[in-house]
Design a protein around this nucleic acid. Structure first.
Lengths: 188, 188
DNA sequence: CTCCAATGTCTGAGTAGTCAGTCTTTTATG
DNA sequence: CATAAAAGACTGACTACTCAGACATTGGAG
């Protein structure tokens, strides 16, 4: 029988972990993840040394993908508000297109299994997002506020908007718009 | 030797659970909670039938206390903005006075051990908070938005503000103020 | 007031079960 | 045949929960 390429198997495990963790939480057995990936539980540990390794790599991968999707379509010569709106749309699109990814990322983000350095990598992936936010608030009411607070407030608004959209998917467009306007009033 | 009153022991377990969960997460062994409470491992299960029971009661207790503290000091004949500001101060006070309570509540809130009915009880405790929020947004830019979205956005802003305060406690007052203004711009 | 039995609570070693990670066996490939 | 990878049964550590006996408290009898 043809043996799948090693990278494909790794990706299958990552995908399975996303799915299983979304539904069973971080306490989900590795055996379940392996089964879902069509891999024996022993094999899983040849791809990821420990469960914590798997979780960290998953975290980095999801966060990086999220940032990339949010930035996709943002144009350099755009008005900053349009850049922000584009990011907002991209971000909400990512989160609503595959709610499991977001749920899993949310769980990982608060887990203490995720190391400092994984978080650093994740934040670096979000650097361009931060840059756009910085320009957005530059002339607004939060121009003197600590940037960390501004970042936190924007993330919080985005999260709350996605939560609501997931809860009532019928009116994505309206909720996305309302959330964006609310966030923009806050920071710019 | 004098036997502690049964209610005191229950409270000791609740307090110990708050402390232990804040530091070890929801996966913390019941044995550790019992030890911290100065109670035998077996006794814990005479007070709470299962670990899930303990978690649910803890959730309800923390959430209720949080709501009560936030509302403490709010006056009925106040301007709605002042009511909101008073709530904001109360809430931040609760969260910063005992960060472990907030950390534990945050973990419980996203846990799937917490039942529908516990969440309902918790939300009922927050009813008055919702009422003030409803009056706040009544004439503002979010008057037509779904109330659930407004609630989510306010909670998110408050959470983000507390996060930041915990991270930089030196300037509580300034951050609290900046967070409040941001939230108010959003909803009113 | 003293004693003793009855009552109900507390204890912690024990039980059954689960899980991450290992290791030997099996299988595919060049 | 030699090599490398995959499989999955297995191990040891750990956990929620139990249960039989220890122990404090109470109240009634002498």
């Amino acid at each position: 029988m043809a043996r799948p390429r090693s990278e494909d198997r790794r990706n299958a495990i990552i995908a399975a972990a996303t799915h299983v963790i979304a539904n069973h939480g971080l306490a989900a057995p590795t055996a379940l993840i392996a089964k879902e990936a069509g891999v024996s539980n022993g094999s899983l540990f040849t791809y990821f040394g420990t469960k914590a390794d798997l979780l960290n790599q998953l975290y980095v991968e999801l966060k990086t993908e999220m940032a990339a999707t949010a930035l996709d379509g943002v144009l350099v010569d755009q008005d900053v508000r349009d850049q922000m709106a584009s990011m907002w749309r991209g971000w909400l699109g990512w989160a609503t297109a595959d709610p499991e990814k977001r749920r899993t990322l949310a769980q990982l983000a608060v887990s203490d299994e995720i190391t400092r350095s994984s978080r650093d990598v994740g934040n670096r992936a979000m650097a361009e997002v931060s840059a756009i936010l910085e320009r957005s608030r530059e002339t607004g009411p939060m121009r003197a506020a600590p940037f960390g607070l501004v970042v936190g407030l924007m993330n919080a608004a985005a999260d709350a908007t996605v939560d609501f959209i997931v809860h009532d998917p019928a009116n994505v467009e309206a909720h996305s718009q309302a959330g964006f306007e609310a966030m923009w009033r806050m920071i710019a």
